[in-house]
């Protein structure tokens, strides 16, 4: 299953090379890398801890990848998400998609990260000068995911 949850960092070049393999059908590789900012909601962030729900997380990510494969003509997709303690500039998440052409690969990559942000069970807790706080969800993330939404989705 091309989905991994891990505490360690990842090497984008190596991961994308492995995703492409030696498949001559691949004409496009689209990737998204999420990283930790040093400011969130006007407070400086020293470190953050990412928690997840083992068991559901892998299933949710695999389901999102399957959904992307059913909606777009792509060849393969990869999601790596880190958990545990992270600091500003660290890599958090990698989404990689291969396809014959860029249009489908770009769209599927954007869909996967949009859905991940609203459906995969991860939570961020930040350490700021005012103390520790759980990150609040953003309405803009719901809006981004809603662009792709078909009827009969679970309630938000």
């Amino acid at each position: 299953m091309p989905v991994r949850v891990q505490t360690t960092d990842f090497d984008v070049s190596a991961e994308l090379a492995a995703l492409r393999g030696a498949d001559p059908r691949v004409g496009a590789v689209a990737a998204f890398i999420g990283t930790v900012r040093d400011v969130n909601d006007a407070a400086s962030v020293a470190t953050m801890t990412l928690e997840h729900y083992p068991g559901m997380t892998e299933k949710a990510l695999a389901g999102i990848v399957d959904e992307a494969k059913s909606r777009w003509d792509i060849i393969d997709a990869l999601v790596i998400h880190r958990v545990g303690e992270l600091k500003p500039t660290d890599q958090i998440v990698l989404v990689g998609v291969t396809g014959a052409h860029r249009g489908e690969a770009f769209a599927a990559c954007e869909f996967i990260i949009d859905y991940l942000k609203t459906r995969a069970p991860f939570w961020k807790k930040e350490v700021t000068p005012d103390g520790t706080r759980w990150v609040e969800p953003r309405a803009s993330d719901d809006d981004a995911a809603a662009r792709w939404t078909a009827p009969a989705e679970p309630p938000r």
Partner: peptide, 10 residues
Amino acid sequence: VALFPPVTGG
């Protein structure tokens, strides 16, 4: 059955 706040990953 798991109860949790809206997710904030990615």
